[in-house]
Design a protein around this nucleic acid. Structure first.
Lengths: 225, 225
DNA sequence: CCCAATGTGAATTTAGTGTGAAAACTCGAT
DNA sequence: ATCGAGTTTTCACACTAAATTCACATTGGG
C-alpha cells in the first residue's frame, strides 16, 4: 500500500511497528539512527516517515528539518511520555502528527491511515509517482511541490507515457499518438524530446526506461536509485 | 489570515495550537477557561473558536451554547479520547467539527482551513487570491482593498478564468465562453484582452499563465515574487 | 568487436504569443 | 443627429520559446 520509513534506535520498537505495518500491507524500511534516516531519504521517497525524537546521533526534530529541505513527506513523531514540551518544536519543522510512547500499535496504524488518506487528494485528475505529480486538469507537473516548466510537446509526451505507465510503448505508437498518425519527420525527433523530457524530470528521468529496439516505458513506481 | 480563539485550560495545548496557527498566518487569542472565553466573545468577534470540552470552570458545551446566543462563529471541539457520547451532544449546541485529543496539529490546521473556506464561500460569492479579490455578486475587483476599474470584457474574461482557476483552458474554450460560440474574429483578439487584463492586474498579472499551444490557466495560489 | 539503435549538443526553422497603434464600434449626453 | 470618451477589435510586426534537423557520440546486445 504505502512505503513507510521507521526511524528509531530501539530494535524492539521498530520490529513491532514493522510487524503491524506489514500486516496492513505497507512496505517498511528501517533506520536505526537519525543520520541513517537522512541518508536514506536523500536516496528515495517515502509516503510516510515515523520518527523517534530521542536518538543518540541526531534527534528527530533535526532529522525532520533536514528531510523538509527537499521533501514534504508526512512525518509522525514518536515521543516518550513526559516529553510533552517537545510538541511545540514540531511546528517549525512541519511535523504532521505525534504519538506518545508507550503507544498502541493500532492507534499508530490508524493515524498512518488518516494521513495517507488526507495526503492522497482525489478531487482532481492527477497521477503521483513519488514526489512527481502530474495534474491533468491543470496541465501542470510538479516535483516535491515545485512547479516544473514543460513545453507543449514535453507535456504531451509525458502525458501519454504516464497515462500508459507500466506499458511498453513502441516508437511508432508514441509518434502517432503524440505527433499524429501523419507525422513524417526525422527519426531523432522522438529521441530528442525524450532527452528534453528526461532533463526536465531530473531525479525522475530514469522512470522513462529505454526498451532497445522497441521504444519506451514509463516506470509506475518511485525509483530507488 | 483569520482570528482564532483557543480555549483550553492546558497551557501546553494552547501553545502548540498557537504555534501552528500563527505559522499558517492566523492571529491567535488565548483563553484558559470557559468563563474567560465567554467574556472575550462578548467583547469581540472571531472567525473560528477552538474549544476544549473538559475545563474546570465551565465546560465546552456550555461555552458553545452561550456563544451561540449572539454569534454563529464556527466552533471546533477538542475532546479527549473515548468521549464519544459527547458528539451527539455537540450537534445540539451547534458544533462545527470535532478533533480528538491527542490530535495531529496538521489535521487541526486542515480542519480550520476547511471551515474557513466553507464559511467564506457561503456568505458571499467571491474569490480571494492573496490580495486580489473578485466579487462576483458585485462584479467588482479589488487589489489590497483598492478598487480596480475593469471594462466589461476584461471582467468577463477574468471571471471565466477565475471560475476555472487551476484548470487549463484552451483558447477555443475561452473564446466560446467569453465571446460566444459563434464568435468569428481575429486570433489576436484574445491575446489583446489577456494583455489588457494583465496590465490591470498589476502584480497579479503573472497569475494568468500562458500555456503555449493550448491557452491559459489562472493560477489559484498567490504568487510570491 | 561490430553494428544498429539510441543519446546528445548545436544550429536552424517554425510556430505561437505579445504588443502598439489605429480603426471601428458602442452608447449616453448634448 | 452628432459628438466623444471609453471600449473592442483588427492588423502588421516583433519576439521568443519551442520543435526539428543533423552530424556525431555513445551504448548495449549478439
Amino acid at each position: 500500500m504505502s512505503n513507510i520509513l521507521i526511524v528509531d534506535d530501539e530494535l524492539k520498537i521498530r520490529e513491532i511497528i514493522k510487524k503491524y505495518a506489514e500486516f496492513e500491507g505497507h512496505t517498511v524500511t528501517e533506520a536505526s539512527g537519525g543520520l541513517q534516516a537522512v541518508n536514506i531519504c536523500r536516496e528515495r521517497e517515502f509516503d510516510i516517515i515515523i520518527l523517534d525524537i530521542m536518538m543518540p546521533d541526531l534527534d528527530g526534530f533535526s532529522v525532520c528539518r533536514e528531510i523538509r529541505k527537499n521533501s514534504s513527506t508526512p512525518v509522525i513523531m514518536l515521543s516518550a511520555r513526559g516529553e510533552e514540551y517537545d510538541r511545540i518544536h514540531g511546528f517549525e519543522v512541519g511535523v504532521d502528527d505525534y504519538v506518545v510512547k508507550p503507544f498502541s500499535p493500532k492507534e499508530l496504524m490508524m493515524r498512518i491511515a488518516a494521513i495517507i488518506k488526507r495526503s492522497s487528494k482525489s478531487d482532481s485528475d492527477m497521477v503521483k509517482i513519488g514526489g512527481l505529480c502530474i495534474d491533468f486538469t491543470g496541465r501542470m507537473v510538479t516535483i516535491d511541490g515545485k512547479n516544473i516548466n514543460m513545453t507543449p510537446k514535453e507535456y504531451d509526451l509525458l502525458f501519454y507515457l504516464v497515462k500508459n505507465r507500466g506499458i511498453a510503448l513502441t516508437r511508432e505508437k508514441l509518434i502517432s499518438n503524440v505527433w499524429g498518425y501523419d507525422f513524417y519527420g526525422d527519426d531523432r525527433t522522438l529521441d530528442t524530446h525524450i532527452k528534453l523530457l528526461r532533463k526536465n524530470l531530473g531525479e525522475y528521468s530514469s522512470n522513462i526506461v529505454t526498451l532497445r529496439g522497441v521504444g519506451y516505458r514509463f516506470e509506475a513506481s518511485a525509483n530507488q536509485t
